[in-house]
Amino acid sequence: MTTRTGSTVAIIGPGAIGTAVAAALHEVGHTPLLCGRSSRDSLTLLDGDRRIVVPGPVRTDPAASADTVDLVFLAVKTTQTEAAAAWLTALSGPETVVCVLQNGVEQVESVAPHAPSGRVVPAVVWFPAQAQADGSVRLRGEPRLSLPDTATARVVAEVLQDTRCAVDLAADFNTLAWRKLLQNAVAGLMVLTHRRAGMFGRADIAGLAVAYLRECLAVARAEGADLGDEVAQAIVEKFQAYPADMGTSILTDREAGRPLEWEIRNGVIARRARQHGIPTPISDVVLPLLAAASDGPG
């Protein structure tokens, strides 16, 4: 679909984050093309008392897509990137920008092989959005993205200008990406306890979380992130300030019996740590437990 900038936009993966971005565009009259695994007539975003319905349909056949678009938002989980490759091929032309709305610090490396004709832009998603039992999505924060300050990323910022989804163009994107990765990594503890944000109110869990984050922080710094000692405590305090029932996408996947994004949220930290010779005793316990949880029951 065409935006006010004249750019055509598609969203691959109309889940929680994809629905939030689609709603932001639809509100200002720029309804995107919706692409996914399951056909749906529309998407619904709940924001407080507001209900925003984004008209579909959600298209399910990449082979039926005749035209490439100027901008693709890739909003599938990293565990689903390979399955979305046909959509990336169908929608990407030589000048197509692919904005990756996924977790992790390896977005470009993981997506570029599936979008050889596109220009890949990594993003940090700073807002929580949760899928509801009825298929709608509940927005639980102001939508905001951080992108690297590049000419390609400015294409994304232009399209989202004047929408509810704010965009920051960051000179030090690496630091922001690692800070978000640390937040995602400690959320993995919620999978191992089957608990939501309320668990961080326990002194023992808060202490474990801070210790794990300090371990992760050493790796982030070795990777060039400019993060101070206060970051570990600040992240835990952020979880403590959330509503007690606030979940996370990796916990939602665990509850639904789906494969977990443990490798790009937690495994990458241990992997990079080995490259730098940094010991990770807490990761060495957390990782096999998350991997086993991802395998499913039995």
Results as ranks from 00 to 15, higher is better:
3 T>R: 06
4 R>K: 13
4 R>I: 09
7 S>E: 12
10 A>G: 02
12 I>F: 08
14 P>A: 03
14 P>L: 02
16 A>L: 08
22 A>T: 04
24 A>F: 04
24 A>M: 05
24 A>D: 11
26 H>P: 02
29 G>A: 02
32 P>F: 13
33 L>C: 06
34 L>E: 01
35 C>H: 03
41 D>N: 11
44 T>I: 13
45 L>N: 10
50 R>Q: 14
54 V>I: 11
55 P>S: 12
59 R>S: 03
62 P>Q: 15
62 P>R: 12
63 A>I: 11
64 A>F: 11
66 A>H: 15
67 D>L: 10
74 L>F: 01
76 V>W: 03
77 K>S: 04
78 T>H: 14
79 T>N: 05
81 T>R: 07
89 T>V: 00
93 G>E: 06
94 P>K: 03
94 P>S: 05
96 T>R: 00
102 Q>S: 02
102 Q>M: 01
103 N>K: 04
103 N>I: 00
106 E>L: 08
106 E>T: 14
110 S>G: 00
110 S>L: 12
110 S>T: 15
111 V>G: 00
114 H>Q: 04
115 A>E: 05
116 P>Y: 08
120 V>P: 01
120 V>S: 02
127 F>A: 00
129 A>F: 09
131 A>T: 13
132 Q>W: 09
133 A>T: 08
133 A>I: 08
134 D>N: 08
137 V>D: 03
144 R>W: 12
146 S>A: 14
146 S>N: 03
151 A>K: 05
156 V>A: 04
158 E>Q: 13
158 E>C: 06
161 Q>D: 12
167 V>S: 01
167 V>P: 04
168 D>W: 08
170 A>I: 06
171 A>R: 14
172 D>C: 07
176 L>F: 12
177 A>Q: 13
178 W>C: 00
181 L>P: 00
184 N>E: 01
185 A>M: 14
188 G>C: 06
191 V>S: 08
192 L>V: 09
192 L>K: 04
193 T>G: 14
195 R>Y: 09
198 G>T: 05
199 M>R: 15
199 M>A: 12
199 M>H: 13
200 F>G: 05
202 R>V: 04
203 A>P: 14
205 I>R: 00
206 A>K: 13
209 A>Q: 10
213 L>W: 11
213 L>P: 08
217 L>Q: 10
222 A>H: 12
222 A>W: 08
225 A>D: 04
227 L>H: 05
227 L>W: 05
228 G>S: 15
236 V>Y: 09
237 E>K: 12
246 M>L: 07
250 I>L: 07
251 L>P: 01
252 T>W: 15
252 T>C: 09
254 R>V: 02
259 P>L: 07
260 L>E: 02
261 E>F: 09
262 W>D: 00
264 I>D: 03
265 R>Y: 01
267 G>T: 07
269 I>T: 06
272 R>S: 05
273 A>H: 11
274 R>L: 14
275 Q>N: 08
275 Q>H: 11
283 S>Y: 13
287 L>N: 08
288 P>Y: 13
288 P>R: 09
288 P>T: 09
292 A>G: 10
295 D>L: 12
297 P>R: 10
